[in-house]
Structures are given as structure tokens and as C-alpha cells.
Computed example of a mutant assay.
Amino acid sequence: MATGPGIQEPLPSLLRRVLRGAVRDHALAERRRTHPAVLHVGIPRGEVRRLELGPDDRFDLALRTEVVETMARHHLAEGRVPLVWLTRMPDGHDEEDLAWAAAVTAASGELGVRLDLVVITRRSWRDPRSGAGQVWARVRPDPQA
């Protein structure tokens, strides 16, 4: 379900490679059948701040926004605009994804930069705001690697 701005097709080739790499990295790193959702803020394959989200964690919009802002400030102080991504299992969490997207949008306004959020599973990425995304049957190693 798309709700507005966000990542739009066609993607720049660098962003497409970064997102594919983030999916591949998640698939390689997370081998458990069930695993918690994790919020990541940073540069994939670079410096990343993570917050594991427990099944009983309850965040309202204000707290989610503060979490995103706090995690993003270090990168912004270093002159880098981070990507925000949520890794999780592929079952439907549309409401949760949209709640984090709203927080990222609010944090963007407060920080004065455009932050993007993608949801990453072992075989896909998707922007919950725009609906843009990609799914793979199997994520293979990068041909340039």
C-alpha cells in the first residue's frame, strides 16, 4: 500500500545496488527461521546503528521519531545522510512499516534532510510509502564482487 513520497522508480543504479546489497547482507547474516525486526540507520556495509525491536515493544510516533533522529544525528554530523531500513521476517507488518515510515518522515522534517525508509527481508526490499521495491527468488552474489 503506497502512501506518498519515498523512493520512486526508476532508481539510480547506485541506490539499486546498495539496496540489493542490503538484502543480500541480511540474507547472509540472518539464518534463523524466526528473528526480531531490527531498525538500522546508517550506510549499508558502512557504519550502522541498530535497534532490535522486541515483539512487546510499543512505540508511539513521538518515540519512534526520537529514535530515528537520535540514530541519524551522528551520520549527519559527519556530513552523511543515512538510509533507514527495517529488517524483518516477510510476513505482513504493513501497519508497523507505515508507523516507522511516518516517524522517518517526521524526523526528516525535524532534521532538515530527506531520509528514506525501506523494509528489507531475506529476498526483498520495499518502500512502504511509495510501494517501490524488488523481490528475488534467490539473492545471488554481486556479479561485480
Rank of each mutant, 00 (worst) to 15 (best):
H40P: 11
H74R: 08
E96G: 10
V41Y: 07
G131F: 13
D94M: 07
R16D: 15
A106Y: 00
E69P: 02
D116M: 04
T121W: 07
L53G: 02
G6Q: 11
R24C: 07
A72C: 00
R123L: 12
A72L: 00
W136C: 08
T3A: 15
I120T: 12
R138H: 10
R64W: 03
E95Q: 11
P5D: 14
L39K: 03
L111M: 04
L11H: 05
R58L: 10
R88V: 08
V38Y: 00
R126Q: 11
R50C: 09
G46K: 02
V118G: 15
L11P: 00
E9G: 07
V18H: 09
P36I: 06
R138W: 08
M89C: 10
I7V: 15
D142T: 10
L51I: 03
G133C: 12
R73F: 04
R114P: 08
V118M: 13
R49N: 09
P10I: 05
P10A: 06
L76Q: 01
P128M: 04
L115W: 07
D97E: 11
R123K: 08
L61H: 10
R50P: 03
R45L: 14
A2I: 13
R64L: 09
A101M: 04
E110R: 15
D56I: 08
F59M: 05
D25I: 05
L11I: 07
L39N: 03
L11C: 07
V135A: 15
R88T: 14
E66M: 04
Q8I: 15
R33L: 15
A77G: 01
E78V: 05
G54C: 02
M1Q: 14
A77S: 08
A102N: 07
P10L: 07
R80T: 03
V67K: 03
T65K: 01
V38A: 03
L98H: 08
R33Y: 13
R122N: 09
I120N: 08
Q144V: 12
P143Y: 10
G21S: 15
D60L: 04
Q8V: 15
A72F: 00
V104Q: 01
D91H: 13
E52H: 04
L61E: 13
L19V: 05
R73T: 12
A132D: 07
S124E: 10
V81L: 00
A29Y: 10
L76F: 00
A132G: 06
M71Q: 10
P55H: 07
H40S: 13
A2K: 14
P143Q: 09
A77E: 11
V119S: 06
R140Y: 13
S124M: 06
R33G: 15
A106C: 02
T87G: 02
A72Q: 00
D25C: 05
R45K: 12
D127H: 08
